[in-house]
Design a protein around this nucleic acid. Structure first.
Lengths: 188, 188
DNA sequence: GTCTATATACGGATAGAC
DNA sequence: GTCTATCCGTATATAGAC
């Protein structure tokens, strides 16, 4: 049963999630979140006692979302090679978001590193979820010995492509690189 | 002749340059810069009329620094392949900075995109300086037709490696990827 | 649980004495 | 050119009426 309080808590977190992605964590104020979620600013602290706590919940939510997505991929795609291709296709499937706001994980990790924020390690857990899943897929493909290296390599490729696409606000490069990565996965 | 005013202007910009890199632009206050440069906060506006103007000057300085560096490389290294290797070796030569603060250009572009800052295009000019230089080197190497693609590809690789290194605060991956890129340049 | 009003700190930016 | 004092807006966070 979803009480009204739980609905409000969820709305705060998903609104903050969206705004942190589009504007950055530090640059997003309580007023921004309150206005977007249509919840009075003062009423806010009834649900969460600090901005850090909201960030912590946002990261937790993102982790749950990623795990849920990877579980779906595992169920839909029995072949590890198809799963890796699905991973690469994140680029083309979310090219509009990447163009305007970059990668949600990558840009958050970059920002928290500059802020020397205490939740930096927590944000890295998001990278680890993908990393561990990729290691599994590369291992299943018969690259057990260098699965860790391949996983990090592929993640870094996606991060670099996202960053350049976001900086130039243009998806031409992204499309070409996504094609190249698909062939790379194909030939593994 | 360097007047005292010019020395102060330079000190403000190079202090801001350093702090914008390590803390981010938005997160760096006038107080931070004033304290680090040992110049009174009020005295500050005698030299620059806004924080944006300081950012603009910092970007200009970074551009000048990059151009100067590339000119030196051109003079020291007659072979385009050696020049490309020198570019890749940025990673290992500045691995400590990358580990703690990421790539100065990449992290600035990422931040300005989130802030929807008016100087975003100006920051992209820094990327263009490298891009144009890389296009020249790939063309000289006989890859004139796809020099643009190769240049963007290589830049994105460095950005991805820098971001992952910065997030995990570990240079193991960077060293391995730098080796891989060296081989890639060798086999072109 | 929800609202208004407000405390407190710090941001960028300015005025004016010296 | 250099300093102190200060304006004004906004940030996070809290108090307390309802």
């Amino acid at each position: 049963m979803a009480t009204k309080g739980e609905i409000n808590r969820q709305r705060i977190i998903s609104t903050a999630d969206d705004l942190f992605y589009r504007q950055g964590y530090d640059h997003t104020s309580f007023t921004d979140i309150a206005d977007a979620a249509e919840i009075a600013r003062g009423n806010f602290y009834y649900y969460y006692k600090s901005k850090d706590e909201i960030l912590s919940e946002v990261i937790k939510k993102r982790g749950d979302d990623i795990k849920h997505m990877l579980n779906e991929w595992d169920q839909d795609l029995p072949e590890p090679r198809d799963r890796l291709k699905r991973y690469v296709s994140i680029l083309t499937k979310s090219e509009d978001e990447i163009q305007h706001y970059g990668c949600p994980m990558g840009s958050l990790c970059t920002e928290l590193a500059k802020l020397r924020h205490g939740l930096q390690d927590t944000a890295n857990d998001l990278l680890d979820i993908f990393h561990d899943w990729l290691v599994t897929q590369f291992s299943l493909l018969g690259h057990k010995a260098d699965a860790n290296e391949l996983a990090l390599h592929l993640m870094a490729r996606l991060q670099g492509i996202s960053l350049i696409t976001n900086a130039y606000q243009d998806t031409t490069f992204l499309k070409r690189e996504a094609d190249g990565l698909m062939q790379w996965v194909e030939q593994l």
